[in-house]
Amino acid sequence: MSNRKKVLWGIALFYMVVLVLLGVIFGVSGHKNNEFQIQNEFKLTNWVDLGVLSINRGVLYLLLTTILTIGTMMYIAGRMKARPNRVQTAVEVLYSLMRENITRGNMADDMARKWFPFIGTLFLFIWYANMIGYLPLPTNTEEKFNLFGVHIPSFALYAATANISVPLILALVVFLAFNFEGVRAQGFGGYVKSLIPAGVHGPMLLLIGPLEIVSVFMRLVSLTIRLFANILAGHMIILFMAGGLAVILGLTFLGWFTMPVAIAVYLFELGLVATLQAFIFATLTAIYIGGAVSHH
């Protein structure tokens, strides 16, 4: 048996022993906690009442996103060097990804020049919103904890994109953008005609025509739900595994069992899903805009 295997077996054994011990100490028959509602972790509580523009944690996350988006890009833009250091190289790779792959890969060059600021910002904005969603911040004002007499809101994971409003309004802007671009390029009739696949005539038109029109509206829904549901589900799983499940079922020792899963999911979300969802949102936007001006 190699050393690595020994270590892994050791860890597994230790893990099982502690699990059994915790089960014995706290007992397997817990009482269910019906008060704890995990979805309340995503509730928006207004902190500063400004009518419709009241500030809540969603707004805080959006503000952080904006500051990070503008701050990092301005910082990098202000000190672009001919011989880049590592940070600049990383940003340049990101920039090239946005400019070449996402934007230019899906539309003509003159259109890419025009639409790149929108698509690039979309990618960065969603990416930062997703990324800071994995940073625990003291935003849970419902549940405070006492630290040397100071009542500090509990640290919580939240993401602006885990609230449906943010992806929805962004998807709405995208929806307006590609329809606007399509109508401008081909005229209203031409644009509607271009939505229907070539070679569809007569009675088939009655069947396929409405379907295609509906599918354009479905883009709005799918863009929204894809981003929102992915981020929300990721946070939910992390919360459940990091203790939510143990609290609800009243099985304290279960927390020991689910915590490693929470860590694995956390890393997966942070390392892949956050970036992937931002990439998909931006790429689909580029595809929709690029597709709106071409005749099918």
Binding site: L44, V52, N56, G58, L62, A160, N163, V166
Partner: peptide, 9 residues
Amino acid sequence: PNVGLMLWT
């Protein structure tokens, strides 16, 4: 959807 958050966005 929360209209306020949409506007903020």
